[in-house]
């Protein structure tokens, strides 16, 4: 965003703007920042970060915490500052769904599809929620969940 200085003070702004939705803010090193976010507010938070210069969604991934919880992990960085923000949203494991970011970061589409096929996390309003790298027969197996029975494949 032009001359605006982008640094870890964004985390203070973020937690001030979204008082209820952002928690556990931590800045472990000069170019790393971590926070937990409310899954219902993910679109607003990402739009806020995009407006403040964080123009690169680097990664969307999932973590499985059986028996009742799953995490969606977002890594957001900027092309003009050496800072990586890690945002984690916890969602229930029996009905994992979260809002899609495709309308904010255009490249979220493939990340979300891959997270969907590996974990079964549904991204609401993603325009093409289908498997990306697996075969279509494997949709529904969710291979990276902890209770996946197909690993190790010793056949």
């Amino acid at each position: 965003m032009g001359d605006e200085k982008i640094d870890k003070t964004i985390m203070i702004e973020l937690s001030n703007t979204f008082k209820d939705a952002v928690s556990d803010v931590d800045v472990p090193s000069p170019n790393r920042a971590v926070a937990r976010i409310d899954p219902g507010k993910v679109k607003e938070i990402m739009q806020f970060l995009l407006d403040n210069g964080f123009d690169h969604l680097s990664c969307v991934s999932g973590v499985d915490y059986p028996p009742d919880k799953m995490d969606v992990v977002y890594h957001v960085t900027s092309y003009s500052a050496p800072l990586v923000i890690t945002l984690k949203a916890s969602i229930p494991r029996d009905d994992p769904n979260i809002d899609s970011l495709c309308g904010i970061y255009w490249n979220a589409n493939w990340y979300e599809r891959e997270t969907y096929e590996l974990y079964g996390i549904k991204f609401n309003d993603c325009p093409y929620m289908k498997v990306l790298l697996l075969t279509e027969e494997m949709e529904g197996d969710w291979p990276l969940r902890k209770d996946y029975a197909g690993y190790p494949d010793l056949t």
Partner: peptide, 9 residues
Amino acid sequence: WESYSTVTH
């Protein structure tokens, strides 16, 4: 060789 997505044999 024991991955969920690899064809062995």
